[in-house]
Write a protein that binds this DNA or RNA. Structure first.
Length: 108
DNA sequence: GGTCTGACGAAAG
DNA sequence: GCTTTCGCCAGAC
């Protein structure tokens, strides 16, 4: 399993109603330093239907600037559909961040 | 086929 | 506490 596939597996496992940060996904995928790669992996996004990239946000709980794939509102709307509250385009990470232990890895 | 660059993030200065 | 640097991988040039 290559790096991208690991990342995709993690992203696909983000539960509904939760969001995860790039760094968190990277960490879960095996190495937190992959944050950048996570972003690029999502950029490739070979399987948008199974890869909810809108649930992946920066550590601030905001979608990245370059995220706009039709308007940031679209992502916000999708997140709200999951029951996630968006305040001024920012997710309340305390409430909605995927509560997975940072040390845990799907691919130990 | 080597180099540059990009949806990030954390540590160092 | 803000700015800079480095780490990581894949695709474009």
């Amino acid at each position: 399993m290559n790096t991208f596939e690991k990342i995709y597996e993690v992203v696909k496992k983000i539960p509904k109603g939760k969001v995860a940060t790039y760094g968190q996904v990277a960490s879960l995928a095996g190495n937190k330093r992959w944050a950048r790669v996570v972003g690029y992996a999502l950029h490739s996004n070979p399987d948008p239907q199974n890869i909810p990239c809108y649930r992946v946000v920066t550590r601030d709980g905001k979608p990245s600037q370059a995220f706009v794939f039709g308007g940031v509102n679209e992502q916000i709307n999708l997140l709200k559909e999951d029951g996630i509250e968006i305040i001024d385009g920012v997710v309340d990470m305390k409430k909605y961040q995927w509560d997975t232990p940072m040390h845990y890895s799907f691919f130990s």
